[in-house]
């Protein structure tokens, strides 16, 4: 465990808790893409199946369990408890356009042709694109609430820190995982445009809105 990964994980945790808290506190999930949240839920469930097969550390097990629980709670709030506030007519990204190609790719490009490994690979690929419905929704409505922007910023920071972590691990531990690194870089690139808007607008106290 290095500092980049720890801060990255904490940033990831902060992001998902922030989103859950915002929905709970405002009793509304307006502006939040339920489709992105379903895909993140799928990411955690398919990746953390190893909770049942091997033990790494208390930290690892706890974080995995929290991620799965928070993801399921978020999906529940969006699709059940606060369904009336869900902005479904702006959340129009087709999930199958991501899940089907990503599933195909996981079958073709993986480390080992076993069920757990293919599901792990699927989750890595899916995570890299799971935020697209959320970004698409923001581009459709032309704006995002400030807390949603903070959520995206914390989530993007986690990805960026993971890249630094991989550079560190490559140099100091000789570890690298090509699948995780390529997918992680793709994912981070998707946040770049958003990062720019966040720094130029939200950090100066303005709401994130896109130029008309």
């Amino acid at each position: 465990m290095n500092i980049f990964r720890l801060v990255g994980d904490l940033s990831h945790l902060l992001a998902i808790l922030l989103l859950l808290w915002k929905i709970w506190k405002t009793r509304s999930c307006a502006g939040v893409s339920g489709k992105s949240q379903i895909m993140f839920g799928l990411v955690y469930i398919t990746r953390y199946l190893d909770l049942f097969t091997n033990f790494i550390s208390i930290y690892n097990t706890t974080m995995k369990a929290i991620f799965i629980a928070v993801a399921i709670a978020t999906i529940y709030l969006i699709y059940f408890k606060f369904k009336a506030t869900y902005d479904s007519n702006h959340d129009t990204f087709r999930m199958e356009f991501l899940i089907v190609p990503v599933g195909g790719l996981a079958f073709l490009v993986n480390h080992d042709f076993t069920a757990l490994e293919i599901l792990w690979t699927f989750s890595i690929y899916l995570e890299s694109v799971a935020i697209l419905p959320q970004l698409f929704m923001i581009s459709k409505t032309g704006e995002a609430e400030t807390i949603t922007s903070h959520y995206l910023f914390a989530l993007g920071s986690y990805r960026a820190l993971y890249i630094v972590n991989w550079v560190y691990r490559y140099y100091f531990e000789g570890f690298f995982d090509l699948i995780a690194i390529v997918a992680g870089c793709v994912q981070t690139i998707l946040y770049c445009d958003f990062f720019y808007l966040y720094v130029t607008k939200v950090m100066h106290g303005k709401k994130l809105s896109l130029p008309a």
């Binding site: 790494i56 550390s57 991620f67 480390h111 080992d112």
Partner: peptide, 10 residues
């Protein structure tokens, strides 16, 4: 395998 699989990461 040829790659080190970082299963300890989240």
């Amino acid at each position: 395998s040829r790659y080190t699989i970082l299963k300890d990461e989240l």
